[in-house]
Simulated assay, not measured.
Amino acid sequence: MTKQRHPEYTCSMEAALSVISGKWKVKILNQLMDGPRRYSEIRRSIDGMTEKMLSQQLRELEEDKILTRKVYPEVPPRVEYAFTELGKELASIFYALEKWGAHFLTVNSDTIKVADASCYTFREPVAEAV
């Protein structure tokens, strides 16, 4: 019997957190904030992550319609990952979480130590012209 990746949720917050939770997904998504990236670029930019784990995490983000995977008909094949429109909505959420996290660390600086409080590059989203 296979474990269901998305169980029945009791609220939308559970669903949202299940899509981005885990050790690697935020790191992967951070790599795509400035635009599409090749598989090999993502792999090289995240220390300690195995190729198997990267492939699995990318596949899950693609299944959840957060990322798209584009294969170019070249030899050797080139594969790029990019945000879908749904995935792009995460930028403002990540920015808010990063701001809140910095505040949390400041308030708790006497009990929590962190090596690099600015380890991600999320920026306040710019409103798109209509």
Rank of each mutant, 00 (worst) to 15 (best):
L54T: 02
K23S: 06
Q31T: 10
L67S: 09
D47K: 14
K23A: 04
I46G: 01
M53W: 14
L61M: 12
G22C: 03
T68S: 12
I42H: 05
M33E: 15
L61T: 13
G35I: 09
N30G: 07
W24C: 04
I66G: 15
Y72I: 07
L29T: 07
I28C: 03
G48P: 03
P36I: 06
M49F: 11
L61V: 13
G35F: 13
Q31P: 00
L67T: 13
M53C: 15
D34T: 13
M53Y: 13
K65L: 07
D34V: 06
L29I: 09
Q57T: 06
K70P: 01
K23E: 09
P73W: 10
P73Q: 06
T68V: 05
G48T: 05
N30W: 01
L54D: 03
P73S: 04
D47T: 14
P36K: 09
I42R: 02
K65Q: 11
P36E: 13
S40R: 15
Q57I: 00
T50F: 03
E41H: 14
S55D: 11
D34Q: 12
T50S: 09
M33A: 15
S55M: 11
E51Q: 11
P73M: 02
R69P: 13
R59F: 10
E74D: 14
M33F: 10
M53R: 13
Q56S: 09
M33L: 14
R43N: 08
V26C: 10
G48K: 01
